[in-house]
Design a binder for these strands. Structure first.
Lengths: 144, 144
DNA sequence: TTAAATATGCAATAAAGTTGCATTTATGTA
DNA sequence: TACATAAATGCAACTTTATTGCATATTTAA
């Protein structure tokens, strides 16, 4: 029989504090959900998981995580916006996601391939680069 | 004084025919608009330009262009979906856009950098690649 | 020229994103 | 610990974008 007990949430508190965010139940739950998941999450994923919270609250939770540099938005051409956890190297001012994102056309999941770095690119004269995103579409190892 | 006259629309007709689409005024107008524009277009761009057409018609026009391989959808993390013209090498079955997309954070325009090719990437074992997209965010030459 | 297939306009709805405001909760300080 | 202040939450409302059904109009092939 599975005994439900209080989990230690010190690590969640630390992450939120270090990003200058207040500690709330909603934020801790959402953050834990991100940490458990390998794949990126969308607003509707959160709504399905946390029916106890209003969708506006979840929307603003995502925004506060975005602004503080806990998560990053992943560009995609279809469906709702997806969000992935940032690395320690990210700060509110300067995001640092030079990893490739992969979207599986079978299961629909979007993954951060943290150890696959985006190759260098050069732009035509006069262009200033602020961020580079690379999204690979295909079939993931699990679905293949 | 500028004299308004009928333009030759044979090239539009040819493009539509070669993609197995019926020739209609709306499709010719939208296609011409794409050909004139360097930057990618969104649904709302079309709505602003072509107030004579219902937005559902424009929506379906975009879809028919997408399905037939005249345009491609450009992934982005913010704002409405953007669409860019395909090259001759694209067919309904197999799209071939290995060029980089650039989004200017100043003017908001998204451009196809047709001669900037997306670099090769390798995936972890078991992954199958179907498409690779690269989006560079920054400031374009005009806005810099 | 006409029948069949397709495109369009209108109405309606779904889904996603966003804001204002009253209430509740978290946090720093006395 | 209690309190004042600042921030988070829930609710309502609204905007934008995406989507479908159906009647009518247009295109195309025979």
């Amino acid at each position: 029989m599975y005994i439900c007990r209080m989990e230690n949430t010190d690590h969640l508190k630390e992450i939120l504090e270090s990003h200058k965010l207040r500690i709330t139940a909603c934020r801790k739950n959402v953050l834990q959900f991100f940490l458990n998941r390998k794949a990126a999450l969308s607003q509707s994923d959160l709504e399905n998981q946390f029916t106890q919270y209003d969708r506006v609250t979840l929307y603003r939770t995502l925004n506060s995580f975005l602004d503080s540099g806990i998560i990053h938005k992943i560009p995609n051409s279809q469906g709702a916006a997806a969000y992935g956890l940032c690395h320690e190297t990210c700060s509110p001012d300067h995001h640092d996601h030079n990893h490739i994102h992969f979207k599986c056309n079978q299961c629909g999941q979007i993954q951060c391939l943290d150890d696959k770095l985006v190759p260098e690119v050069t732009m035509p004269k006069g262009y200033m680069i602020e961020a580079v995103n690379m999204i690979v579409d295909g079939v993931c190892a699990k679905c293949a």
